[in-house]
Amino acid sequence: MQQFEIPKTFKAAQLAEYGKELQIAEIKTPELKEGEVLIKVEAAPVNPSDLSLNDGHYPSGKVLPAVPGIEGSGVVVQIGPNVENVKVGTKVAFTAYSNYGSYGQYSLTTSQQIIPLDDDISFEAGASSIVNPITVLLMLIETQELGAKAIVHTAASSALGRMLVKYFQDSGIDVINVVRRQEQVELLQKEGAKYVLNQTSETFQKDLNALAHKLNATVFFDCIGGNITGEILSQLPNKSTALLYGLLSGQPVSDISAISLIFQGKTIKGFWLTTLIHKYNPFVDENAKKNLNALLKTTLKTEYAKQYPLDKINEGIQFYKKNQTSGKILVRPHQ
């Protein structure tokens, strides 16, 4: 078995107070418990969900001060007792919901939260293997199980949105992409999206109603929340389902019509990767793992706008907040 020298301490970006900048600190390397894995982190992206967790809008399960960072890629350098599904030295993608997230030189996770990566997948590509790609994979499964032929998706120019429209259209599912700016309309159209609507248009609701009924779009994935959730659901065909997987607006879901729920058979429910149990989940299904690795090189490949060393992470986060359509940023803890 390959052996690595484990440092007593390592550098990490710590969250000391929700809504505040991260602080670079030297922290003690944790001792592994049963089922745990220590990963030397090579790359970690900043996702919208990371921003929401850092601001305290999402439950994190962390005890502050803690190292944030939901996902990343790296190499397994130490395993705890009774870990049998991965070996030391394996290149992996991982999620980390412990106090030792991915924004550090090392991260602590469990053996059930890792996915081995093919040798020809770089750490950069592998860093964004989970939050967006697996969500998109399971969104398609959910759509197929609900029997939908078309869907509506908000914040469609995001990294996830651009993955989704390619993957869904390749799978024969039409996507009505909803964005807020004309340049986002043009971006998606340039990348091959067939249907794009600007929610700031005066005719948005009328156009959405007509297109949703024409395509029979009965599934709606929403990551914004607030009043847009109810506004869009009200324009969809009877028996449509809204799946809320984010809350970028920071506002409670509103404008849900009782008529829509009672008389039109519409439903709304949550869709969250960490609580979603499905047999086709790459964390547990070997065929799904192989499929994910293949798609990471093509349809579900992530592009990054910029990369930052760990001590410049706050600068990177500020850039990302202002330029999310440009692509994610990537943190490189060992640079």
Rank of each mutant, 00 (worst) to 15 (best):
M1R: 10
Q2N: 11
Q3G: 05
T9W: 02
K11H: 10
A12E: 06
Y18P: 13
K20P: 08
K20M: 09
E34F: 12
L38P: 03
K40H: 12
E42M: 15
S49N: 13
L53N: 11
Y58I: 00
Y58C: 11
P59D: 04
P59C: 10
S60G: 15
K62L: 10
V63I: 15
L64N: 01
P65R: 00
P68R: 09
G69D: 00
I70H: 08
G74K: 01
G74S: 10
V76P: 01
V83G: 01
N85W: 05
K91D: 00
G101C: 07
G101W: 07
S107T: 04
S107R: 08
S111M: 14
D118L: 11
D118C: 06
D119R: 09
D120P: 02
A127E: 09
I130F: 02
N132L: 02
T135M: 07
V136F: 05
L137D: 07
L137R: 04
M139K: 06
T143I: 06
T143K: 01
A148V: 05
A155P: 01
V175D: 06
R180W: 10
E186G: 02
L188E: 05
K190E: 14
E202M: 11
K206V: 10
K206H: 10
D207A: 14
N209W: 04
N209Q: 13
L215Q: 11
L215V: 10
V219L: 03
F220N: 08
L233Q: 02
Q235V: 03
Y245P: 00
Y245K: 07
F263K: 11
T267E: 12
I268Q: 07
F271N: 05
L273W: 02
L276H: 12
H278V: 06
V284L: 11
E286Y: 13
K290L: 12
K297W: 14
K297T: 08
T299G: 03
E303P: 01
Y304D: 02
Y308Q: 05
P309E: 07
L310D: 00
D311T: 15
N314Y: 04
E315L: 07
E315A: 01
Q324P: 12
